[in-house]
Amino acid sequence: MFAEQLINGITLGSIYAIVALGYTLVFGVLDIINMAHGEIFMFGAFVGMLIATKAQAPLWSAFLGAIAVTGAMGYLLERFALRPLRGRPGASHLASLISTIGVSILLENVAHKIFGAGNQLFETPFAEIRFDVGPVTVYLVQVLILAISILLMAGLSLWLYRTRAGKALRATAENLETAGLLGVDTTRIITATVVIASAMGGVAGVLVGMAFNYINNQIGLSMGLKGLAIIIFGGMGSVSGAMAGGLILGLSETFVVAYGSSGYRDAIAFIAIIVVLLIKPQGLFGQAAPEAQR
């Protein structure tokens, strides 16, 4: 059914978009690919599961719990794995890449230790509530996921483009040193960015749990890879690119699975970026980077 697949695709795509936003914020400010983002996202999903399913607490508390835990993880990541590398002579961009990879290996195995390797059920009390709009069936969960994603994206855009702090963040992204000279507390902005990006990952984790009803310690990896593909596809550091890229990927995956072969589902993201990069190396929404940029 076309309309239902469309809704499925948009739901999935909006989750992808939120994950990709986490990457793009950090990249925009720090020029770093945060390879630990997928694992932080996964912890959000697990915390949500513990609160919503194990403790049977209301869903909003699951979101709050996930945001608190992943936000704190973002702070620790910035404080102990990124900040010590900053401004060090001899620390190439490879160093921060490896450092975040180290954090991701650590987190993946901590999750394995705590939660085990198998699938964990993520139940929500209203998982079966659905409406029939004409011939189309819409689940309440899908509406919720979409509403939360749109709220989150709108909130982020407002914050980025309408507030002082958002302006400071954009200035820092533009040029760290100049922003610092002009009186922006760049250390605080960087910390805030990593914390916000991680908390968004945490929200996305709970949304994934709601959408798929199960989670395991591998979702961080697969979601992380897709998030990476999306930011390349949409253009590094581009907020609108991450949103559009997420939606496009969600829709194309859903339709390929529905009308084609499910086996190639996980390759779509990368086939798309390889094609896009060959045609437009800076991504769909990216601005042409100056040659000197690595």
Partner: peptide, 19 residues
Amino acid sequence: YRYIIYGALLVAMMIYRPQ
């Protein structure tokens, strides 16, 4: 715990000897 240590070691390594 070995892969947890492995991950932590990578981070420490990049802090103290990034090259």
